[in-house]
Write a protein that binds this DNA or RNA. Structure first.
Lengths: 221, 221
DNA sequence: ATTACTAAGCAGCGAGTAA
DNA sequence: TTTACTCGCTGCTTAGTAA
């Protein structure tokens, strides 16, 4: 939807056009939008044609109601703004399921990690990680997470080697509880690793390439 | 602010550009907005020039942060959407204070009205009404109020005459408690009449022509 | 009063390209 | 790789005006 049409739809909504009929002339709407009567009229024609509003003509002014279609458009926009101002409490990643190379299983079987997961997350992770590939542009949100800070999993040493520290955030994958795991060392990649008390791949009935939504929860300040 | 610039600002915010720096190229932003690299670049120049964002250039990509200015623009937009979806619980009118012709005092001194006000609103109105002139376009919101319904003040008869029924809504004027009064008979005018336990004109230190904000509260369903 | 057409002008778009 | 310039073209805007 063209941004200028959405703007007009918003204006109609603010005047009470949601589940209610308003009576306005194209001149009045033009004034509200700081534009000409002709442009307001054209916008109304476009909104009508695209079924975002319904119009009836009287002898003067016109009666306008926002359709379900139009209401959905407004709701979508609203939810984006809610997300922006909610970004300090939760961050949403959209991606697709991918297979790792089994290293996830190796790490999540280390007692040194398992104990800390149990303590900080109050669950025992199912062996292995569930990997989600995100678009490069969403890596910016990973940076955001590191800036805000999360649960610190400390490094530890076994007789064989050292396991590095990890930053961890409670999360959900398509609504199922878990946590995401960001190794401190590695640079931001386009793969998010998720651990969960459940075997996510089975629980969500997901195979490689399926779209998934990862919601990451930040600790409130 | 041009709607298409706001759209881009919103996109930057969704990527985490609020109180945080993101690294994106103009091509990536163009992809997000379904437009060309050139257009994305131009938008960034405009947003920068108008101080909605701050930019730094690295060897690749650019580091972008939303300025306070930009954040305000987003907050304004957000609050408008909040208002739309809150319209079923409260409606806001902006107008200016005007003087009536004293009839307000006559009506608000009628015991038949006073008793009902006390019962439905839990306060005794200060004699007289506080009148607010709204723009003709906002009369649509009055229609909305009548559709939703409010507190019914019933008509009554004295030995001299009949006083008509009135629709009434709890409200506040610049934050001070009161109620608006819509005579059932009269057609929508551009004057809102407000009653209040306080002498609003004095309490708010307001004279004719001063801008006021009337917030009307609807009963929840 | 109203809506909305036509026509002309101008702003925004993006291909090509420089740095 | 980047960003952002020029410039031709498209499409949005608005004055004038009909209905």
């Amino acid at each position: 939807m063209k941004p200028y049409l959405l703007q007009m739809l918003k204006e109609i909504a603010l005047l009470g056009g949601v589940r209610n009929t308003i009576e306005v002339s194209s001149v009045e709407l033009a004034d509200q939008l700081n534009t000409s009567q002709q442009t307001a009229s054209r916008y109304l024609l476009e909104l009508d044609k695209k079924e975002f509003i319904h119009r009836e003509f009287g002898i003067k002014k016109q009666r306008i109601t926002i359709t379900d279609n139009g209401l959905h458009a407004l709701e979508d926009e609203y939810s984006q703004y809610k997300q922006i101002f909610d970004l300090e409490s939760k961050v949403c990643f959209k991606g697709v399921a991918v297979s790792g190379m089994g290293e996830g299983k190796y790490y999540t079987n280390q007692p040194g990690y398992i104990q800390q997961f149990q303590q900080l997350l109050q669950f025992t992770p199912h062996p292995g990680t569930f990997n989600v590939e995100i678009t490069p542009i969403e890596r910016n949100k990973l940076r955001l997470l590191k800036n805000v800070g999360g649960l610190e999993i400390e490094e530890f040493t076994t007789k064989n080697r050292t396991f590095g520290s990890v930053l961890c955030f409670p999360a959900s994958v398509n609504g199922v509880k878990g946590a995401i795991v960001l190794p401190r060392r590695s640079h931001y990649s386009t793969i998010i690793e998720v651990i969960s008390p459940h075997y996510l791949r089975e629980r969500l009935a997901i195979k490689d390439g399926d779209p998934v939504e990862v919601m990451v929860f930040l600790k409130k300040k």
